[in-house]
């Protein structure tokens, strides 16, 4: 049956209109706002051209935030995907309780972020927290009082928590992909005497490539604009040592406790964030491009 072009356009129109109105218009408006000095109160704006972007390039906190975001993206991604691969390999090796393990590892994804930050905050509390109590119990007094949430380690403490939360999501994604791979491939490999690792490397990974690519794109977008966890991890206010670009943008534009309200400048940060996301996704898609395997 041949569907007329008019009908296709008709069906596409509502979604396209919504996309245009709620995504494209705000995006291009944001580009415009980023050229103004504006606190967001009323219409009192003054055009400053590219000054916001010039200021951004000399803004220490912006670069500190960007560096944290990049570290979460690269290092966090490496650990998350590494762990997700290992767990996928283990869970698909035929062990009992596969569903239980999957559910347990995925569990953090269904818990509210604020509950998770509270949990991790208390876990890291020196002396009274879980880690403190553990080290205290085994007689490691110095470690029991170690300031995990101190300025030098707070970012790393946060990264560990993020990895713990996110690994479950990518594990489930990979497991769903593995379920689609015909069992015959593995049986043939076993008959040929392949080890578990060889089967994983030579069958699972190549046939899972598309899923891995999608996972990496999703992670990149999430990691570059990560907000909720860093925002609520460090008490009353986000800590500068764990600022991400999205957190910094929020602080500048919308305020937490401090009435900064530099909406024009914050929008410039947002535009940079969008550009970084686009760049990362483009690079990733290029790096991950492979010949498609049919099965």
């Amino acid at each position: 049956m041949r569907i007329s072009k008019r009908l296709i356009i008709l069906f596409l129109l509502p979604a396209s209109a919504l996309y245009f109105w709620f995504f494209l218009v705000p995006t291009f408006s944001a580009l415009g706002y980023s050229l103004y000095d504006w606190r967001g109160f009323g219409t009192n704006q003054s055009f400053v051209g590219l000054n916001n972007y010039v200021e951004l390039f000399n803004d220490r906190l912006f670069w500190r935030s960007m560096s944290n975001s990049i570290l979460i993206l690269l290092l966090g991604g490496l650990i998350i995907f590494g762990l997700a691969f290992v767990m996928t390999m283990m869970i698909t090796s035929g062990i009992k309780g596969r569903k239980l393990f999957r559910a347990i590892i995925f569990l953090p994804n269904v818990i509210a972020v604020i509950a998770l930050t509270t949990l991790w905050g208390y876990l890291y509390t020196p002396k009274f927290g879980l880690l403190g109590a553990f080290f205290d119990a085994i007689g490691l007094d110095q470690l029991a009082e170690f300031p995990w949430l101190g300025p030098d380690t707070i970012f790393w403490a946060m990264l560990v928590a993020i990895v713990w939360i996110e690994v479950g999501f990518y594990l489930v994604l990979f497991l769903a992909g593995v379920d689609k791979i015909p069992e015959d491939f593995y049986e043939a490999a076993r008959l040929d005497g392949a080890s578990q690792f060889q089967m994983f490397r030579l069958i699972t990974v190549p046939l899972l490539w598309d899923v891995i690519t999608v996972g990496m794109v999703l992670w990149s977008i999430y990691a570059v604009k990560i907000f909720e966890f860093p925002f609520s991890f460090t008490g009353l206010e986000p800590n500068v040592n764990s600022y991400t670009v999205a957190v910094y943008m929020y602080i500048l534009g919308f305020g937490q406790r401090q009435p900064i309200y530099r909406l024009g400048y914050a929008t410039a940060v947002g535009v940079m964030l969008l550009l970084v996301v686009i760049l990362v996704v483009m690079v990733l898609r290029r790096l991950m491009r492979r010949e498609q395997l049919q099965y």
Partner: peptide, 9 residues
Amino acid sequence: VTLGYVWPQ
């Protein structure tokens, strides 16, 4: 040890 406390710890 205070160095490792965030509010309200």
